[in-house]
């Protein structure tokens, strides 16, 4: 099997590759979102902790 044939998917290229593309998108977004969220939460907690320290000092 050559590469052209592989990408052609027996004429179903559009359907097959769209499905796999959407799957890749869903899998990536569910890894990226929690990573960003964790950074955001930790940043917010650190800022709040510094603020209370300054106010009590």
């Amino acid at each position: 099997m050559n590469l052209n044939e592989f990408f052609h998917m027996g004429g179903y290229a559009f359907y097959v590759w769209t499905s796999y593309g959407i799957a890749l998108f869903v899998l990536l977004i569910n890894v990226i979102l929690p990573i960003l969220q964790r950074k955001k939460i930790l940043g917010r907690i650190a800022r709040a902790a510094r603020r209370t320290r300054r106010n009590t000092a």
């Binding site: 969220q37 964790r38 939460i41 940043g43 907690i45 709040a48």
Partner: peptide, 23 residues
């Protein structure tokens, strides 16, 4: 687990260990 860790941080934000971790 990644999402649950975020939720744990959010709920435990007033505890010492989370503050230490954040700083």
């Amino acid at each position: 687990l990644m999402r649950a860790r975020c939720e744990v941080l959010e709920r435990e934000r007033n505890t010492g260990w989370v503050r230490e971790l954040a700083e």
